[in-house]
Each structure stands twice: as structure tokens, then as C-alpha cells.
Write a protein that binds this DNA or RNA. Structure first.
Length: 565
RNA sequence: AGGGGUGUAGCCAAGUGGUAAGGCACUGGAUUUUGAUUCCAGCAUUCGUAGGUUCAAGUCCUGCCACCCCUGCCA
């Protein structure tokens, strides 16, 4: 069986219940084309958890050759700010998604939604209620007791229509009237107890200005927007489960046409040790704990992108957490890191950078020699780049030890170690300064051990990286620790329980240092990703200047060194 | 007896009556000119719990327990 776009449904392997349902719908002729919608509310910056929703919205449609509308669900003028409504396009493009069309619900659908409301009034399905917000709340009942019907519930359709027009025409002050759906005040599902469809609200809408003084509520507007747009599957997070009966009620009593969009729900994603609540992130930006919404320590998409995480890693990660069938799934941060390393390992160019230099003099070397470094040993096509082995070089201070721990296979006095891509060297002497610290090393190289041409038979346990004095330059390194202290697995909960935000933050989560990088890195551009061999993955930060290249530490390499085993 | 949802390893998660996939994490070991990568092996005698049906139950039935969501004119 083929879809209109030529895709053979029988060749599609469903990966979750929704996809199974879609296949059934297609086979039964209920669905001709899979259309989804991605509805970010333009009121904040997008983070990793949003990426899960977007991935589901887009990938579900892509899998069936369908399309996805990007829809600004801007039904509340007091929450939405134009300031925030732009970055989603960049984020989406970064993730590799292209919306079929961008629509602003306010501009595109408010008129139609209004007309549907009028018809529902005429059908006796909606009424204008003049109870105050407090009174509505007081008459809603409780979880275990039914609510009371509004005294305005039995007005005639004609009366309701006139009053609704009065609402639209500004004859009611804010909060003085609402349009309510006439369902059932005793319904066990609280959402069905005559929910508000429209409220009177005088606020400047960032798109429509003061065109309206009434705004539809999400529960009413969303199913109507879906229906008007032809969305077949409206995917949202699990907390809307209880709203589904209402969604279906509005489709049946408001939309009334045979085509019915379906709301289906997936689990929200949360990550241990990551603070994701918008209002907290806002506070951190405002109070200067971080340097803006794209701070590399932030879980925002612009943040992780600047940190050096790849779009592919983010997508693979969110997919790995599944569709879910509970409110939210919580996964450890290491699950995310796995996908970041996996992707970077494939694409990052290898380079030698010494973060904490220790000078080494190669006493028996006359002149500098050119060497070659593989750009990526896991990728045959990545090529090599040139580096230099010189008389004066720098190695990582931690790669030499006067008192080596067990199993230490780096340099020790009298010992040997291989310099990556160059020769094996032997340490003859550690020269100490007046405080007893190692000032520099005097080593000799073993000429017959050149990398790739070594027939000496000399066995050497360790290999370390280095840079030569005449082939390196100084760069700035930004090392990050997790913003949130390790012990706060659920920082939002700690905050909601009254813990101060300053208490849960890791002190010194940003440390700026300098390092010596091989000259090869001089041409690096913003967002270029590298593996500093034996250290970790780094990418060029946008703060870099011509004279000061800044690298963000994306993530360290795994360290399997176990001195005690 | 408000309604809805969920219980499978430290975490995520397949499983749709036929004898517990996979991934993360972890632990061994092999390879390695990155202590990375890669590879190989180990990691639930049992699926919240107590019964029941069945030749056979994580899957079906009944009771119980635990956790999550719902009382905005937010989305």
C-alpha cells in the first residue's frame, strides 16, 4: 500500500505505538498524509528538552514523507515577547529541520476560531459567564466533589451571542466575562467542567497589537488550529493526557467536520544535574551567574551548540530516550555525554595542545624535524597535517612524575616515553628550581625510533603529546564544570523546596587558562571542533579574535586509567 | 472506591501466552604510537506484590501496594 507521495507503507518499520497507529490509519484510509505541527510558544529560549519534542514532531512526519508546520502558539499576549520569537529558526536549522511553513496562530487563525466560537454559541455549546475568576474557581468543585453550575449557564443562544460580541467589542472590563464551554460541571475530569474558551484581556499582542481584547484559551484554540491546518497528529507532552477528552470534545462540537486531528502524548525529558526551568535560567542570566542565554554551561540549544555539542549528538540522545509513557523520564548526564563523544570521535580533527606546559630540552637534537599527525585515525580519508619536532618542546606537566604512582606509563627519570608522531625520548635529568619543583627536563631522543619507521624493537608503554617551541602559539582555554553541583540531581526540585540558587551552583564552573597549541590550529574558525589528543574535545568560541583564539572545552576524553588495578 | 497514567537491572527500554532484546553506566580481558576509539566477555533464575487461570504468565483475571499528573480567565 502506497501513500500519495509514493512511500510504501508496508516498508515502514514502526518504532513506537504512534507509528503503529499511523500505519493503521493509512491502511484504513483515515490518513492520506502525515502532517504534524511544532508549536513552540514564543516566550523563551529552547533547550534540550524542546529538542525532544521537535525531533518527534519532525521525524514522525519525515518518516512518512509528510510535513510539519512551525506554528507560533501565541494566544496569550502577556506571555509572549517578540524578543524571543526569532531564535527558534536558527535552532531548528541547526538541528537540520526545515518547517513546511511558519505560521503565527494569532494572525492565521484567530478570525476562524472566533467564528467557530460563535457557531458553538448558536449550537448551545457555549455561554458567556460573568462569574469572577475567584467565583469560577470556587464553583469548580474539588478532585472528589462535583462543581456547581454557573448561574449564567442557561442563557439563550441569542443572548450569549450578543454578550460574546460585547466581549469582543470591549464592553467588558478585563476579567469580567468569559466564554465557557457547556459540558458538565460534575465531570470527574476537571478539564471538562465548563472550561473557559475565551477571556477578556487588554494587552498589546506582539503581532496583532490591540486588534483583539479577547483571546482564546489553549485548550480551545489548539484543536481548532490543528483542524484548520489539517494536522493529522498533534503531538504534545504527557501532562496534556487529561486534556485529550476536551480536545476531542472541541473537535466534535466545534470543528464538526469529518476530518479529526488526533492528540497523542509523549514523555518529557529531563536530565540529572541540569537546570532547565525557564524562570530559573532567566534568573541566572539576569543575575549574571552566566554570560547570556548562549553560555556554554547552559542547557539551551544555543548554549550546547556553543559548547561544541553537535546537533547529531543531541538528536541521537533524545531519540535514545524513547517515546515514553510516563510524565517525564530522567536520564543521567552521562547518557548525553556518550552521544556527544561518539559523534565528536568521528568528526573532530586531532591536534596537539599542551594545557600545562613543562619544558623539555632534547639535548642530542641538532635541528628541527618535520613530522606528520593524522587528522583522525578513525577516518582514513581525513588526511594528515604537519607538525614539528624541535630541540625545545613542551609536554604536559602531568606526563612526568618524580614519584610515579603504580602503573604510571608516562615519563619518569631514567625512563622512556614515545612522543606522538615523533620519537621515543629518554629522560636523563629533571632540573629542579630553588623550591624543589621541576623546572625543565633534559632528555635525549632515540634516532632510530622515528614514528612509522621504527625498527629498533624498543618497547615503550606510553605515548604522550607535545608541542615544539618553534611550532606553537598561545591560546585561551575555557574549561567548564557542570553548572550545578553534583549532589543536586534534581536542581529544579531543590529550588522549589526553597534552596537558594547560589547554593546549588558549582563555584568556579568556568575557568579560563592558556595553553600552547600547535600552529596547525591557527586557521581554526568559530565552531570548528577538535580533539586535543589525550585531553578532550574543544571548539572555537565566538569570542575569539585574530590575536586570541579561544577554545571551549566541550567534553573530556574518557579516562580508563586505574592506578590501583 | 474522584479521574487519568505508570511499575521489567543503578538509569533508559523492548517484550502483544511459548521460557527476559538492546543501549547507558559499571566490571574483567584483547588490540592500540591518544590510559581515547575498536573488539570480546560479564552484568534480572525473574518483571511492584499476593493469589488465580493455563501444559505454559512479564504478558490474561482478581485483590493489594507504590509513585506521577489533574481543582489558571497559563501553555
Amino acid at each position: 500500500m502506497k501513500l500519495a507521495n509514493g512511500i510504501d507503507v508496508d516498508s515502514i518499520v514502526p518504532e513506537n505505538e504512534l507509528e503503529e497507529e499511523i500505519i493503521e490509519d493509512i491502511k484504513a484510509g483515515r490518513t492520506k498524509e502525515v502532517i504534524t505541527r511544532c508549536p513552540p510558544e514564543p516566550s523563551g529560549y529552547w533547550h534540550i528538552a524542546h529538542a525532544k519534542a521537535w525531533t518527534i514532531d519532525f521525524d514522525t512526519a519525515i518518516k512518512f514523507g509528510g510535513k510539519t508546520y512551525l506554528r507560533m502558539d501565541d494566544t496569550n499576549p502577556v506571555k509572549e515577547e517578540g524578543e524571543f520569537s526569532d531564535s527558534y529558526m536558527d535552532d531548528l536549522a541547526w538541528l537540520g529541520y526545515k518547517p513546511y511553513k511558519l505560521v503565527f496562530a494569532s494572525e492565521a487563525y484567530f478570525d476562524d476560531i472566533y467564528k467557530i466560537a460563535e457557531q458553538m454559541i448558536l449550537d448551545g455549546k457555549a455561554y458567556v459567564c460573568e462569574l469572577s475568576a475567584e467565583e469560577v474557581s470556587a464553583t469548580r468543585g474539588t478532585l472528589t466533589e462535583p462543581g456547581k453550575e454557573s448561574p449564567y449557564r442557561n442563557r439563550t443562544p441569542e443572548e450569549n451571542l450578543k454578550l460574546f460580541h460585547d466581549m469582543r467589542d470591549g464592553k467588558f472590563a478585563d476579567g469580567k466575562a468569559t466564554l465557557r464551554a457547556k459540558i458538565d460541571m460534575a465531570h470527574p475530569n476537571m478539564n471538562m467542567r465548563d472550561p473557559v474558551m475565551y477571556r477578556v484581556l487588554r494587552a498589546e499582542h506582539y503581532k496583532l497589537g490591540n486588534k483583539w481584547c479577547i483571546y482564546p484559551m489553549y485548550d480551545f484554540a489548539h484543536p481548532m488550529e490543528d483542524a484548520l491546518e489539517g494536522v493529522t497528529y498533534s503531538l504534545c507532552s504527557m501532562e496534556f493526557r487529561d486534556h485529550r477528552p476536551l480536545y476531542d470534545w472541541f473537535i466534535e462540537n466545534g470543528w464538526k467536520k469529518p476530518f479529526a486531528p488526533k492528540q497523542r502524548e509523549f514523555s518529557r525529558l529531563t536530565i540529572e544535574n541540569v537546570l532547565i526551568g525557564k524562570r530559573y535560567l532567566k534568573q541566572l542570566v539576569k543575575e549574571g551567574y552566566v554570560n547570556g542565554w548562549d553560555d556554554p554551561r547552559f542547557p539551551t540549544l544555543v548554549g550546547v551548540r556553543r559548547r561544541g555539542y553537535t546537533a547529531n549528538a543531541i538528536k541521537q540522545f533524545v531519540k535514545s530516550t524513547g517515546w515514553g509513557n510516563v510524565l517525564e523520564v530522567t536520564v543521567p548526564y552521562s547518557a548525553l555525554e556518550y552521544y556527544v563523544r561518539e559523534d565528536l570521535n568521528k568528526i573532530a580533527t586531532r591536534a596537539m595542545v599542551v594545557l600545562d606546559p613543562l619544558k623539555v630540552v632534547i639535548t642530542n637534537l641538532e635541528k628541527s624535524e618535520e613530522i606528520e599527525i593524522e587528522n583522525n585515525p578513525n577516518d582514513e580519508n581525513s588526511g594528515k597535517h604537519k607538525a614539528v619536532f624541535g630541540k625545545e618542546i613542551y609536554i604536559e606537566r602531568e606526563d612526568f612524575s618524580l614519584n610515579p604512582p603504580p602503573k604510571y606509563n608516562r615519563l619518569v627519570e631514567g625512563g622512556i616515553v614515545r612522543l606522538k608522531g615523533a620519537y621515543i625520548i629518554k629522560c636523563n635529568k629533571a632540573v629542579l628550581d630553588k623550591d624543589g619543583n621541576v623546572d625543565h627536563l633534559e632528555c635525549e631522543y632515540l634516532p632510530e625510533t622515528k614514528s612509522g619507521e621504527d625498527n629498533s624493537g624498543i618497547k615503550c608503554k606510553g605515548t604522550i603529546h607535545f608541542v615544539s617551541k618553534d611550532n606553537c602559539f598561545k591560546v585561551t582555554i575555557r574549561q567548564f564544570k557542570n553548572l550545578i553541583k553534583e549532589e543536586y540531581k534534581n536542581p529544579a526540585k531543590a529550588l522549589s523546596e526553597g534552596t537558594a540558587i547560589s547554593e546549588i551552583l558549582e563555584p568556579n564552573s568556568l575557568i579560563e587558562t592558556t595553553a600552547l597549541a600547535e600552529n596547525f590550529l591557527k586557521d581554526a574558525k568559530v565552531e570548528d571542533k577538535f580533539q586535543f589528543m589525550r585531553k578532550g574535545y574543544y571548539c572555537v568560541d565566538k569570542d575569539s579574535t585574530k590575536d586570541n583564539l579561544i577554545f571551549n572545552s566541550t567534553i573530556s576524553l574518557k579516562d580508563g586509567f586505574k592506578p590501583n588495578k
